[in-house]
Design a binder for these strands. Structure first.
Length: 441
RNA sequence: GCCGCGUUCGUCUAGUGGCCUAGGACAUUGGGUUUUCAUCCCAGAAAUCACGGGUUCGACUCCCGUACGCGGUACCA
């Protein structure tokens, strides 16, 4: 039976880099019909961040990386570690000093192990090793003891963790052996780097999973993108479902090279997921997203209803990369826009003889007349012909006329398709807005 | 300093001795479709495979060294 685990320490919120570690561990377990679990490594009381454990659990759920319940909390197991530390002292493999229990490292010989990543044999000279603390004077274990005890009791195999642990392998293997336990296999995942090529961390910006969530990223896209940082699915499709990842994944195909986290590609991939998403699914995702961020800066508009969201989805699906893009693209549909005269100045068509900013108001007046004269409900063909004719009359390009209508109706130069947006707003509201603009001018 | 790991387009990568004068994706450039923006389609630029030695008929692929990068070197994880 294959058992893997994700073992973050709650010294901060769930980090995007941890997602890949968790994902690979999850994939290995599922691929082998094994068990995936979560362990919270909260043995450092000084660095403990309140709320971090909850954040980790919530984000694991959100990502769909389901673990066996309940998560193991190391601080609950203090006595167990102490017992094993004492046992090692009794056997002479460890000793007490300054209130802590230290593991006695042998000073001669070598220690070899084969890492599952790249199948590389790594050799350490034991003469470079130093004694290390197993149990701190506050009674809590260090990572080294806790890892050995927990992964033995949980029967974790293989141990999948970040590369920064590679140097500690001699400590771990020797501890397993001193306790008379079987040594698990290890897979040390290469680090994920920021654009400056140092280990990805806070100073590279907001890297908490929650922050990506608030920014409108989809869990599927995050998982898919992170999977690609060090692993390539078979074939040439980069977009791959979790289920297909499970089928195709193997640790032996994972690279040993650190990868730079590139948010631009994540954004592209998120857009891909949005584009191929079913309307009903996207609708609930946007709805839930708006609910979640309400109260925060982005939610400056009244929430559209679920029905309203559903109606506009076909119009915006190809135009948003993140759920958060929904708001600025559509808020004019739910509330009256604020008009900015500078917008209109930019609309003055260049190269059209005799047309200037002052004429825009006249054109707007003509647009108003045409709108009022048009039979309701407005038809797309009629609408289009009407304003193409107006363009001919005024000597403007059709595109300029439509753009003027667009800004008049939305206050923006970029919107979903004009006619469809107008239909959502309703004829009366459109006329009202144009009239309001003319009065305002 | 010492120990460990790593090194193919800007980024993620394909590549396991000849198929590679190095392929794909993102980004980027140009063009097409389009009443905006996107989407979509087409085309292009982009890596002397870190460098130097080997091994071999032949190396991006194997070996050694150097450089550089990163990680570790805590009673942090």
């Amino acid at each position: 039976m294959i058992k893997t685990r994700f073992a973050p320490s709650p010294t901060g919120m769930m980090h995007i880099g941890g997602v890949r570690t968790a994902l690979y561990a999850y994939l290995v377990a599922k691929k082998n019909n094994g068990v995936f679990s979560l362990r919270i490594e909260d043995t450092d009381r000084n660095r403990f961040v309140s709320g971090a454990t909850e954040d980790i659990i919530a984000n694991m759920r959100w990502l769909g990386l389901n673990f066996e319940e309940p998560p193991i909390i190391q601080s609950d197991r203090k006595e167990i570690y102490k017992q094993y530390a004492n046992e090692l002292v009794k056997e002479g493999a460890a000793y007490e000093k300054d209130g802590a229990i230290w593991f006695k490292m042998p000073q001669t010989g070598q220690l070899k192990f084969t890492d599952l990543i790249g199948n590389r044999e790594v050799v350490f000279d034991l003469k470079d090793q130093k004694d290390f603390v197993l149990l701190k004077s506050d009674g809590f274990p260090t990572y080294h003891l806790a890892h050995v005890v927990d992964d033995h009791e949980m029967e974790t195999n293989p141990v999948i963790r970040a590369d920064e642990w590679m140097s500690s392998v001699p400590k771990h293997i020797l501890t397993f052996q001193a306790l008379g336990w079987e040594v698990p296999e290890y897979a040390h995942l290469p680090l994920i780097l920021g654009t400056d090529r140092s280990k990805l961390s806070k100073r590279h910006g907001a890297m908490g999973v929650s922050e990506f969530r608030k920014d409108g990223f989809l869990p599927e896209a995050i998982l898919n993108y992170m999977a690609l940082l060090g692993w390539t699915p078979p074939g040439d499709k980069e977009i791959i479902t979790l289920e297909d990842m499970i089928k195709a994944f193997s640790l032996k195909d994972v690279h040993s090279t650190p990868a730079v986290f590139d948010i631009t590609k994540l954004e592209w991939m998120n857009g891909e997921y949005i584009r191929k998403s079913q309307i009903s699914k996207l609708k609930s995702q946007i709805w839930e997203y708006l609910m979640e961020i309400s109260g925060e800066a982005l939610a400056k508009v009244e929430h559209p209803t679920e029905d309203e969201i559903e109606k506009v989805i076909p119009l915006i699906k190809d135009r948003i990369k993140k759920l958060s893009d929904f708001v600025p693209l559509t808020d004019f549909l739910w509330e009256k826009p604020e008009y900015d005269k500078a917008q209109f100045e930019k609309l003055v068509p260049s190269g059209v003889e005799g047309v200037n900013i002052k004429d825009q108001k006249d054109v707007l007046g003509k647009i108003m007349e045409k709108l009022e004269a048009m039979e309701k409900p407005w038809q797309a063909e009629v609408f289009e012909k009407t304003f193409r004719d107006l363009a001919d009359e005024t000597g403007l390009k059709a595109g300029d006329v439509f753009q003027l209508i667009r800004v008049a109706v939305s206050g923006q130069t970029v919107t979903p398709p004009l006619f469809e947006s107008i239909k959502i707003l309703g004829e009366d509201e459109v006329v009202k807005r144009v009239a309001y603009l003319i009065a305002l001018w």
